[in-house]
Write a protein that binds this DNA or RNA. Structure first.
Ligand SMILES: [Mn+2]
Ligand SMILES: [Mn+2]
Ligand SMILES: [Zn+2]
Ligand SMILES: [Zn+2]
Lengths: 143, 143
DNA sequence: ACGTTAATGAGAATGATTCTCATTCTATTT
DNA sequence: AAATAGAATGAGAATCATTCTCATTAACGT
């Protein structure tokens, strides 16, 4: 379980960290902001500080347990690192996030980086659009 | 010139706005932070406030004169909107930015969005890597 | 040149994230 | 199991980019 994941990183196994991983693991929405995690733990009766959440997330990221994404709109979102790399499409109305992986795109990226003389280390591909939910399609933008 | 661009947006033609467009237009590096623009204008002896720079950039963006990018690292960068859409690759060592456009990638994105039931409105693709400059390749990361 | 109205700049305010530091835990050693 | 050393925690201050407020100034149709 999470217990082992933590131990392997060299980080100490503490209640706040375990609860955070648990929270990230069982969330319906796999992509959570630091505050969302913080609030959920508070509501679950845990005693935790927002500083701890941010600090731990950064450590998890460094350890490869978690990935940080900067979608539009201020807050970063974090997701538990399961399975392989993927990219995202985000609904500009409801915030829904879907994941995808496309080998053709990945391949083209490698080719382009090489052609430009770069050693590719990372990339970020995020699409934004209107998802298929009833209130999301064909909205007029003015909020 | 910039004069006309501004008039077309409905924005008034003012000294700060003209200077900003001029600055964005003649910069060797096409991708500038708000502060970079602010500093350059100050150094050129212009009297301008940082608030004005941010405000005008947001207006330029809304008018389609300028594009805002959120690369890694806090500050947004802005670039004058010439030519057609393109994506970016950024050197993680020296910050150099190269641009590219790949129809195959664009096409796959449209197909993926459709398959997932999204109406695609926008996207962001940024690669990060080590560029070909002497001090950028094969660096050890610890800063 | 005048008047209306938008634009400006200084500084305060905001929001996300990080830092500081005194206190509390973990894990390891007696 | 008690003792220890060092890491982790939480509250609140601090930071950083960006936006807001508001009194003053500038743009431009008349
Ligand atoms: Mn994901
Ligand atoms: Mn560009
Ligand atoms: Zn939606
Ligand atoms: Zn470089």
């Amino acid at each position: 379980m999470e217990n082992q994941d933590l131990r392997n990183t060299g980080l100490k196994v503490t209640v706040p960290r375990l609860k955070m991983l648990e929270c990230l693991g069982k969330a319906q929405d796999r992509h959570l902001t630091a505050e969302a995690i913080y609030r959920q733990l508070l509501e679950a009766g845990e005693e935790i500080g927002l500083a701890t959440v941010y600090r731990a997330l950064t450590q998890f990221e460094a350890a490869g347990l978690v990935t940080r994404h900067h979608f539009e709109g201020g807050q970063a979102v974090f997701e538990l690192e399961r399975g392989p790399h993927h990219d995202h499409i985000v609904c500009i109305h409801c915030g829904r996030v879907e994941e995808f992986y496309d080998e053709a795109i990945e391949k083209r990226q490698r080719a382009i980086a090489k052609k430009l003389g770069f050693i590719l280390r990372d990339h970020t591909l995020t699409m934004y659009g209107e998802c298929s939910r009833p209130n999301c399609q064909g909205q007029n933008d003015e909020s």
